[in-house]
Amino acid sequence: MRPIQDYYPHLCNKQNIVITMHQKPDGDAMGSTLGLYHFLANLGHNVSVISPTNWAAFLDWMPGASAVLDYEKDKAAADKLIDNANTIFCLDFNVMYRTKNMEQPLMDATCTKILIDHHRQPQEEVFTYGISNIYKSSTCEMVYDFIIESGYASLLDRNIATCLYTGIMTDTGSFRFPSTTASVHLAVAHFKELGIDHTAIHENVFDSFLENRLKFLGNSLMNRMEVLYEYNTAIMVIPKSDLVKFNTKTGDTEGFVNYLLSIDGIRFAALVIDRTEERKWSFRSKGNFDVNNFARMHFSGGGHKNAAGGSTYDSLETTVQRFKEILPGYQNELSNL
């Protein structure tokens, strides 16, 4: 993988460009792809955005979201765009399998592939150019850097700024996580100068859920949470029956795992959800406990030091029991945080 700076001279050559992200995109994935989409369109490129799957409804308001293709719903159209692309930008994921059913078409594509991402251990060999920086707050911050450093700061506009602010806001936990550096605040100041309405963005993302989502959250906190104080750990186990009972939609569990870290003394939080095809884990931590390594070692996952995910095809009962059997091996590490 060559440095992304080597690609900058090619930005002035009009191309067919596809931008994609990880499955079930969050605010950073959608924000970074749409921010880059508007920027490249401003440069005169023919640009398309493809999501491997559907996404949470609370992201539908974002500028350009209506033009995003859902690969699972529009496979033929998406495959044609990939086949005709001169360049494919891969944002907010480090390995191709995180694009689910898009993995093989992306691997088969012979065009230029570019990585912009902040997760650990990227699959560098499949990308022509790229940048991977685990110290960046978000992929949105990295797209902002890409625009500035490539010499096109003048093309930044309110739509781009709105998209990029959304991802920075969500991936920094509304600017409270350690990844919120001075450079993050400088970017946000620039976005404000471009006219973003940060209040409206927060409301669109955090204040647009349905009543059943609050009931679902209340049930999860009351009946599905267990605190393991001897390990400074809390776990939330959500069975498929709850997803059906509360008529949940994509994005309804967003942020649930963070509630566990709000308990005094808890340094490791784990959420597992019984999806139809697999059990999905989300891990969060405070301090030096590395959930990226934990997820990679035990649950076929990964991510960041303090935020990671994983999955298993074991039953819900089996994977929860396995998690609890693993914890004693980390007792010293968790008690010394």
Rank of each mutant, 00 (worst) to 15 (best):
P9E: 08
K14A: 10
N16M: 08
V18Y: 08
D26N: 08
L36G: 00
L40N: 06
H45V: 09
N46E: 13
N46G: 01
I50G: 01
P52D: 04
G64W: 12
S66A: 12
A76L: 11
D79I: 11
L81P: 04
L81R: 15
D83P: 00
R98K: 07
M107C: 03
T110C: 07
C111S: 12
I114M: 03
V126K: 06
T128V: 01
G130C: 03
K136E: 14
T139C: 15
M142D: 11
E149S: 07
E149W: 08
Y152A: 02
R158Q: 14
T162R: 08
C163K: 07
C163Q: 07
T170R: 02
G173H: 09
F175R: 10
F175L: 10
F177V: 08
V184D: 12
A187L: 11
V188I: 15
F191I: 15
K192C: 13
I196L: 11
I196E: 08
H198V: 13
V205T: 04
F206K: 10
F209K: 15
F209A: 10
K215L: 15
F216G: 05
G218Q: 12
S220D: 09
M222G: 00
V227N: 06
P239E: 02
P239I: 04
K245A: 14
T250Q: 13
G251D: 05
E254A: 07
G255W: 04
S262R: 05
A270F: 04
V272I: 10
V272H: 00
V272K: 00
I273G: 00
T276V: 07
R279P: 00
F283I: 09
G287H: 03
G287R: 04
G287W: 06
G287E: 09
R296M: 09
A308C: 05
E317C: 02
N332Q: 14
E333I: 00
N336A: 03
